[in-house]
């Protein structure tokens, strides 16, 4: 096995682990590694990253259905916007300017990171019996040992960010979880574990039209590097899923906020 293949495997493993812990597809990590460190073209890196995103989403499907934290109704509603965004992005792969796209992404990530740091100690849960609305939910919280409820707020904002995440999925190969999870948690009142699980469900569906477009463009090549990345993701996801119950929500929030800050810095200052 060559260095490039080992790098793809390692980056995939890290991305998969993050996927299990905080619900991101890991494209934000995979694209730079595949593009800069391994030397794939940006389009090939994007396509391989999307295969990794789908592997993350597929890994979540083996958990018992009732032990999954995702909010299916919220996911369906937001998917309408993220899939529309992905289709728009896929149709305009060559139209958008790279630098303006990265600037928008960087500013959005910076705002989300700031809100996450401000709300590190805030828990998005309500007492049992509260009005949770149409999109809210209830789940067993391992941190408190009891059942908790939550209500989804600012749905139009969630729809707008999901649309933007869909566009970015097609254009720069990220799963969109890096925007969706902090947005749902910090701005929409969704507990982190639910936000992460809902994001994993969403990123897989959103990646389908984007990958179809990349595949049709021939960006997957002979599929080899994409496969190495995806194998890494599958291994990393299992590791992350083992660690996840042991990691307190606050630590996950710190990891997520730090990650979003790094991404913001990368996109704002290294364009």
């Amino acid at each position: 096995m060559q260095t490039a293949e080992l790098l793809a495997l390692g980056a995939g493993a890290l991305a998969g682990c993050l996927g299990a812990l905080v619900g991101i597809g890991g494209g934000v990590l995979l694209v730079p590694v595949l593009n800069v460190a391994i030397g794939l073209s940006f389009n090939q890196a994007t396509a391989a990253s999307l295969v990794g995103v789908l592997a993350t989403s597929s890994s979540a499907g083996i958990a018992p259905v009732r032990r999954r934290f995702h909010n299916a109704r919220l996911a369906i509603l937001l998917l309408l916007f993220s899939v529309s965004g992905a289709m728009l992005g896929a149709k305009n792969l060559a139209t958008f300017s790279d630098s303006s796209l990265k600037l928008i992404f960087g500013v959005t990530a910076a705002v989300i990171a700031a809100v996450m740091f401000v709300r590190l100690n805030t828990r998005n849960v309500l007492p049992i019996g509260s009005d949770i609305g149409v999109l809210g939910g209830r789940f067993h919280d391992d941190d408190t040992g009891g059942d908790v409820e939550y209500r989804v707020r600012r749905v139009p904002l969630a729809a707008a960010v999901s649309f933007a995440a869909g566009v970015l999925t097609s254009l720069i190969g990220i799963g969109g979880g890096i925007l969706i999870v902090p947005m749902l948690n910090a701005l929409c009142g969704v507990p982190l574990r639910v936000a992460a699980a809902t994001s994993v469900l969403m990123i897989g569906v959103t990646a389908v039209p984007s990958l179809a477009a990349r595949w049709a463009n021939g960006d997957l090549g002979d599929f080899h590097m994409a496969a190495m990345t995806a194998i890494g993701v599958l291994l990393g996801f299992q590791l992350g899923r083992t660690i996840s119950p042991l990691a307190p929500v606050k630590s996950l929030k710190v990891v997520m906020a730090a990650l979003v800050s790094l991404v913001a810095v990368q996109y704002l200052f290294r364009r």
């Binding site: 789908l54 989403s57 499907g61 897989g204 990958l211 595949w215």
Partner: peptide, 11 residues
Amino acid sequence: CGLLMTVPAVN
């Protein structure tokens, strides 16, 4: 890859 794309659709 085709199978990977089918999984989210079936979900």
